[in-house]
């Protein structure tokens, strides 16, 4: 593939990079404890936590790199990091 002149790029390039494979620990979201505050979505460095129709939060595991920030920051301790089975 030829290089783009001036290293120019259309948006969405980062989507090609499926960071989900980097995970060692996997965040498990407990919707029972969740207060729907949205901190996990705000602070996730991958921007991979999404809110569903009922206002519940879930990570997109194809991009979640298992950094654990959401688990540390969740005020309800609703997220636990479990060793990924590979």
């Amino acid at each position: 593939m030829a290089l783009a002149v001036g290293c120019r790029a259309r948006p969405g390039k980062a989507r090609d990079n499926k960071t989900g494979s980097w995970r060692v620990f996997k965040p498990i979201f407990d919707h029972e404890k969740c207060s729907k505050c949205g901190m996990c979505k705000t602070l996730c460095p991958e921007g991979c936590v999404h809110e569903d129709a009922e206002g519940l939060f879930n990570p997109d595991y194809s991009y979640c790199k298992g950094c654990g920030i959401c688990a540390v920051e969740c005020p309800k301790e609703a997220i636990t990091m479990k060793l990924e089975e590979k």
Partner: peptide, 15 residues
């Protein structure tokens, strides 16, 4: 050929 345009976004000098 290419220019910054909010309706058709593009970045210049990516890494």
């Amino acid at each position: 050929a290419e220019r910054l345009d909010a309706a058709d976004p593009i970045s210049f000098g990516m890494y």
